[in-house]
């Protein structure tokens, strides 16, 4: 599918998550370029609550980006 210029792509999101969380691997999908599904696996999630894991990922995005250019980011977090 074609992603409009200036809009985030699943590949960009994947890189951002993997660069932002040491050792993380992410699978990111989107059917429409604005709603994203991500499965993130990271060793640093170990010992963290669900809330803390989600906050860590959300923290990689600019203020207003989630709910803005990225309408929604559905997250599943796992440890390796």
């Amino acid at each position: 599918m074609h992603y409009p210029e200036g809009m985030p792509s699943p590949e960009e999101l994947r890189q951002r998550i993997e660069n932002g969380i040491p050792g993380a691997s992410a699978e990111v999908r989107s059917v429409d370029g604005v709603h994203f599904d991500a499965v993130v696996t990271a060793p640093s999630f170990d010992g963290m609550s669900r809330i803390e894991r989600h906050r860590l990922v959300y923290g990689l995005f600019e203020n207003g980006e989630l709910g803005g250019a990225i309408h929604a980011l559905s997250l599943k977090t796992e440890t390796p």
Partner: peptide, 20 residues
Amino acid sequence: NWPTIPQLFVKGDLIGGCDI
């Protein structure tokens, strides 16, 4: 300190959004 909606709170604590 949670960017998205919905947000569920139980006994004053944030439980999470839709995924959680």
